[in-house]
Write a protein that binds this DNA or RNA. Structure first.
Lengths: 240, 240
DNA sequence: CCATTTATTTACCGGTCAGTATAGAATACG
DNA sequence: CGTATTCTATACTGACCGGTAAATAAATGG
């Protein structure tokens, strides 16, 4: 992952800690306690180094958090990537939500979502940081919107489907879910919201979905090329 | 609103500021900057008094925030109360979302929702405060669940409708909406999520809803007493 | 061995904040 | 009037935090 070649024998005293590992430890602390409530002394102690070393390596606190955010957005891309792993839009969104929930309550890191928490108090953060956080949230909106747009092209969603609104809806819901996971609610509790959320795609619910879809099609004659539920339904193990 | 009778001539020096007004000013500051980032010096200045007066009147910072929370939950009950103002469940939830969005971006107070923001970093707050915040969120869940349960009794929702899950879904979504409003997103942008959210009630979408409902009813023969869309549709001015 | 370069550490500064001790001001009672 | 009572303001403490200056340590190049 390191972008520079470690060769080219550097001149001065070598760094006594690993930059990536330092970012990881910072990530965990910022995730757990947020930007404002994580002190650089804390981070320094977690990294096993003194404060000025951090300043020398990363700049000030804001710059460090910036880099941590970029690092986190890597982890965060998993639920987004899973969107393209299912050709059926319903399965894709299902897996997206499922993976989002799982990521917010798995072991080895704090609960919830660093980005969602940072977004929650983005108004209290340095303006540039806030801007970056909003940009990342926007990216998430866009990613979901892209997937929905593809589903419209495929005919899995009606031509007049509100792609942007639904994408924003899904990310917004996941932010709320992240807050609840962070507050200690169980995964099982949160999964109950998934079924309700999936209805945003239309009423293909359980086994009546196909027949209801047919009725809908008969009623709206305007939009011709509509093929609800293309039925390629590979097994969905929900990934976790 | 004052619970005590202002008679019974008190003995010592009279208080030189109004308790309720002080709570209101504290509310605005806590709403804007959160619990941790609002200093008592700030509040004291906003109230027009010095710090020790606040301590004498309200106890410590945590107690003050407690009282502010209670005060806020009064304001917050508006979207909940509107749930019972519409006998049609779809209209009720529509108005609930609409009023929630409006309340999160109206003038005269900070954007977003104090409770949602407090909930977001409840893990960073004193444990008793966190507990109280979670209790208030739970109350919101319960209120929506009550309204949905009534709709099931009325036959407006199927008997096997997941009342608890959908209630949690709706409040969770509104938390996400509050975060986005606070981050500066426009009311118009957020309203686009409403249509997607309303589908959680089933697929009564636009004008095809009634006919689709009939089909559904034909398919599920088990649950007899079901009357989708009781059609009493009073005009819904969306309240703001 | 010496100079240069880079990293690390110790020690500090200025600021903010929650909370308090103490003294003074304003009221009621008698 | 004086006394008790209740509130208010001044002034402080102790802790924490972001950031930095200056000295020191560890490497390379010659």
């Amino acid at each position: 992952m390191s972008t520079e070649i470690p060769s080219s024998p550097v001149r001065g005293r070598p760094r006594c800690f690993d930059l990536e590992e330092a970012l990881d430890r910072s990530l965990l602390l910022f995730w757990e306690k947020g930007f404002q409530n994580t002190s650089l002394d804390e981070i320094a102690e977690a990294v096993g180094v003194k404060k000025p070393s951090l300043y020398a390596a990363f700049g000030d606190k804001e710059m460090l958090f910036r880099k941590v955010l970029q690092r986190y957005s890597g982890k965060l891309s998993e639920p987004v990537q899973v969107l393209d792993r299912y050709s059926n839009i319903r399965e894709a969104i299902d897996a997206f939500i499922e993976l989002g929930i799982a990521g917010g309550c798995s072991e080895g890191h704090p609960r919830g979502c660093l980005l969602a928490s940072a977004f929650a108090d983005s108004t209290l953060l340095p303006p540039n940081l806030a801007k970056e956080i909003k940009a990342l949230v926007n990216q998430a909106d866009q990613a979901v919107a892209q997937r929905l747009k593809k589903a419209v092209r495929d005919g899995q969603l009606p031509a007049d489907f509100d792609v942007k609104g639904t994408a924003k809806f899904l990310i917004t819901l996941m932010h709320g879910v992240a807050l609840r996971l962070r507050a200690g609610e169980s995964r099982a509790e949160l999964r109950r919201t998934k079924k309700a959320a999936l209805r945003c795609l239309g009423c293909e619910d359980e086994e009546i979905s196909r027949k209801a879809a047919k009725v809908k099609r008969r009623l709206n004659r305007r939009s011709q090329r509509r093929t609800f539920l293309q039925k390629q339904t590979k097994v969905n193990p929900h990934l976790l």
